[in-house]
Amino acid sequence: MFGDLRVVLAAVGVKLPSLAVDWTSAGTTGVVLIELGAAAPAEVAKLVDALRKGARA
Rank of each mutant, 00 (worst) to 15 (best):
M1E: 14
M1V: 13
F2Q: 06
G3N: 12
G3E: 11
G3F: 07
L5V: 14
R6H: 06
R6S: 02
R6A: 06
R6P: 01
V8P: 00
V8N: 04
L9D: 01
L9Q: 01
L9H: 01
A10P: 00
A11I: 04
A11R: 11
V12D: 07
G13S: 05
V14Y: 00
K15L: 13
K15M: 11
L16Y: 01
L16V: 02
P17A: 10
S18E: 15
L19W: 00
L19C: 06
L19N: 01
V21Q: 13
V21P: 02
D22I: 01
W23Y: 15
T24D: 12
T24S: 09
S25D: 11
T28M: 10
T28A: 14
T28C: 08
T28K: 15
T28R: 15
T29V: 12
G30L: 08
G30R: 05
V32L: 15
L33R: 14
E35G: 02
L36K: 00
L36A: 09
A38M: 08
A38E: 10
A39S: 11
A39L: 05
A39Q: 03
A40P: 05
A40C: 07
P41H: 09
P41R: 07
A42V: 13
E43R: 00
E43I: 03
V44D: 02
V44M: 05
A45N: 09
A45M: 08
K46P: 01
K46S: 02
K46F: 04
K46E: 03
V48K: 04
V48E: 06
V48Y: 03
V48L: 09
D49F: 10
D49L: 08
A50T: 03
A50L: 03
L51C: 13
R52L: 12
R52T: 11
R52N: 06
K53R: 14
G54P: 02
G54M: 06
A55L: 15
A55V: 14
R56L: 15
R56T: 13
A57D: 12
A57P: 07
